[in-house]
Amino acid sequence: MGGRYGDVAIQPASITDKTFKETWHARALAVTLATGSLRQWNLDMSRHARECLPPKDYCAFSYYDKWISALANLLVAKGVISPDEFLDPIQKMHPLSSRKLLAADVAGVLSKGAPTSRSVEGSPKFLVGQSVKTRRADNKFISGGHTRLPKYVERCEGKIEICHGAHVFPDTHAHDLGEQPEHLYTVSFLTSELWESPENPSDTLCVDIWESYMEPVNDP
């Protein structure tokens, strides 16, 4: 949605705001994190599941409603539970219950995280300062699949700012096609390259972009 028109003013937080506005927000977050321990999907798959909500639901649902609805779809798609159980729960131990996240393990799991950096053979294709151009923001492996190249920077020219080393590639990882790690870069774009009427043409945008999302540009 980056750059989309029509959205109204931002409502900054007030100091009395709670971490979770509603009790069910906290529950939605906790259920989503806890089911991750069943190891039936990865982070890219769960992001993709949210993107796969029908557009009318995606627009209408609040933030945590998207999370919980996508989680329901993921649980069914991965064969963990049947949709019948949503309304008519079954009291029966699941084969995956041995992987259930226990309260005693929560602190360890949350503080460990899941780094996505990987060692790969071969040096980065691009150097800091080099000019690059992004390709179309579509998944090249699966039509309509997950990608992390935002639409608003597709086919735009930018400059390599930082090389981050290789990271898991979301376009394959979200679709059971493996991690296929690639070099990841921070690329800067002048706002005048991105928008027809930039707010200030000398401001910049930095976006983290995987190597295969870009091609080199020969500087004049």
């Binding site: 609805s69 963990v80 159980e85 009291q91 219950s97 259930k100 996240l101």
Partner: peptide, 16 residues
Amino acid sequence: KVKALETALVKRGLID
């Protein structure tokens, strides 16, 4: 929605 999902998962022993 959250409540229904949580209940279904707790009954199968998938979340605590």
